[in-house]
Write a protein that binds this DNA or RNA. Structure first.
Lengths: 304, 304
DNA sequence: GGTAGTCATACGATCAAAATATGCGGAACG
DNA sequence: CGTTCCGCATATTTTGATCGTATGACTACC
């Protein structure tokens, strides 16, 4: 005993619409006898007559009318299911969980989101601020699909790809002697008390960048405060006169009273924001997101 | 480009359930390579990967999860559609035993049969003429499925539903003084000898209708003959000059020489033919027949 | 009563799915 | 660290179902 197939339903619906086996066969681009055979097969399978064959065409029986409605609905739903699957498969719809450090929300994240939303309006984005070490944990336990944080960082189980970079500025209290300058060298503030960004677990991040810049300028910073990790807090402490700090350029947009930002003429290091995601299978939505962010950013090439 | 078929969905669901091509193939009673091929075909058709093949089995992608839900629903609905069609169809074949009074074969029965035969050509009809009391007996002992007779009638174990009604005519011998009239009042023949239809057991039927009409006209009919139950016999007796009779309009088509039919201007009573069947379960064939006869007749509303 | 149109039947051709045999690659085991 | 096992992929033959062509039977219509 054979099984009902969608072909049978498609044929049957066409027969019902044309009220004629001959015309239906023409519309289906097959000959009339095979159509007859398939219809008969369907009727045998269902154990009932579906179509009355008369001399001038075919018309549905009661059972046929019932099946027609059902068959139309089923065929429509198959089409829908195909479309949905296709869309999810292509990354057009779905759900993407993204963790990011708060600094990313200044300059890096907004254009990413704008472009992604424009391209994939039906993807639900779950955005969560978190610490960089938290991002790594959440990546590992699969609670987020991707994360944004400062380089340097590496993890054998994760892809890491730079997506944006910005220069570093010196943040000074407004009361400082150098505030009337536009550019300074880092070694000019070698004696100042420094506020350094926090290190998070095994993640060197911006801390490493700043320390390295100081090393290259020939001094070791005198640290008055560490373990402050929010950039805006650091700027706040600077404004409060606690000391100076090296911060990413996007901090300038904070426009906090009491702090001024100067270009560092002798610092080549730049703060690199990277996106990271699990190695292995890459869901289509994530693939789409990666396509957008690596295409839209000032980021450099891939890491592998 | 091929089309998606239900086979693909069935295979896919099994693969998803077993999380393994090999086990799924076993459950489907086919070899593993063809299953691989069909899955690949489905993926090509949908343009997306549905299953991740790993070294120890297969697991769904995001798109696959979406399709799984849809496919399950669709397969279930196909099954439902088959069941529904089958059920309706089961009323399309079979056997229906119908008892009827001979009068019904004049005007009521033919259109019923024509319409029913057109819609359900595969139902074998067993038609049996019988007296109304016999119809009731045969209904009770389940030897017929339905019966046609004149109202009034009621029985707690039977459904009764009018399916046709006709006016009453006065049948006169051709030799009668009133034969040149077209319309008469019933009381104009109050002195004539009456031929009344028979009463059958507890069934008042047409007898009650005629007697009631006479009562309303202000007289009690003088009965010369009773217990004649075939309408055509009554008309024959009228033609033979035995007396006059009140008969249903369809008797006019008998065209028996020696009898004329006049419209009764003061008789509101009409002869109602009803269909009756057992309470309780209604087989599909009977249900189909009832659908036809209640839809095709000039019958009035239901009896309950 | 002929004719054109319908669907059913018969049979050979074609195509798609299934079976068999085998290869490849990753995971588990010693 | 190599061997073995397990699971999926590939290649090829076999099977079976669908399709196409030719033809016949029937009905409605002219």
């Amino acid at each position: 005993m054979a099984e009902v197939e969608l072909r049978h339903l498609r044929y049957f619906v066409t027969i019902a619409e044309e009220q004629s086996l001959t015309r239906a066969a023409a519309r289906l681009h097959i000959a009339q006898p095979p159509l007859s055979a398939q219809l008969r097969k369907l009727e045998t399978e269902l154990g009932t007559t579906l179509v009355h064959r008369t001399a001038r065409g075919a018309q549905l029986t009661e059972a046929g009318k019932v099946l027609l409605e059902e068959a139309r609905r089923i065929l429509h739903e198959v089409e829908q299911a195909g479309r949905m699957t296709r869309e999810v498969g292509s990354g057009l719809v779905g759900r993407l969980a993204l963790g990011f450090i708060p600094s990313a929300s200044n300059a890096v994240l907004p254009p990413m989101l704008r472009r992604f939303k424009a391209e994939y309006p039906d993807v639900t984005l779950h955005l969560q601020e978190m610490r960089p070490d938290e991002i790594v944990d959440r990546l590992h336990d699969r609670r987020i699909d991707a994360g944004l944080f400062y380089l340097p960082f590496e993890d054998p189980a994760l892809h890491v790809r730079p997506v944006a970079e910005e220069s570093l500025l010196l943040a000074l209290p407004a009361t400082h002697r150098l505030t009337d300058r536009e550019r300074v060298r880092l070694d000019e503030v070698s004696d100042e008390p420094f506020i350094l960004p926090a290190r998070h677990g095994s993640m060197p991040g911006l801390y490493a960048i700043v320390v390295e810049a100081c090393e290259r300028a020939g001094f070791t910073p005198r640290v008055v405060q560490r373990d402050v990790w929010l950039m805006q807090t650091i700027v706040g402490l600077v404004a409060g006169g606690m000391g100076v700090a090296v911060v990413p350029a996007s901090m300038r947009s904070l426009q906090r009273a009491g702090a001024v930002f100067l270009t560092l003429s002798d610092v080549g290091e730049r703060a690199q924001t990277a996106i990271s995601w699990r190695r292995g299978s890459t869901p289509p939505v994530l693939r789409s997101f990666l396509d957008i962010v690596t295409g839209s950013s000032s980021g450099v090439g891939p890491d592998e």
